[in-house]
Amino acid sequence: MNSNIFFRPLLYLDPGTGSFIIQILLAGLLGIGVAVKVYWKKIVSFFKGNKEDSNLDRLDEIDEYGGDPKISNVDG
């Protein structure tokens, strides 16, 4: 049995199709988008200075990279 519901041909109305196609269309674009964004940020911060919210950076760091080794989901 194919357990992947998105590839079952019997789904006559598949709302996932559009979500698949956009990803394929985006595949090429995204690399450019991310690169442009990085440069754009550099340009903006050159003129405006870095005004990032340091509180927010600290929160993001925990969620994105596990900033704090003291916290773990192990009881105790």
Binding site: F7, L13, T17, F20, I21, A27
Partner: peptide, 25 residues
């Protein structure tokens, strides 16, 4: 926005074999 448009456009179409054949690595 484009994601929503794409969903609408392909709302009644099934995912073809083509879409899973390596275009999205």
């Amino acid at each position: 926005y484009l994601h929503a448009r794409s969903q609408k456009r392909y709302a009644d179409k099934a995912v073809s074999e083509d879409m899973k054949s390596g275009k999205f690595n």
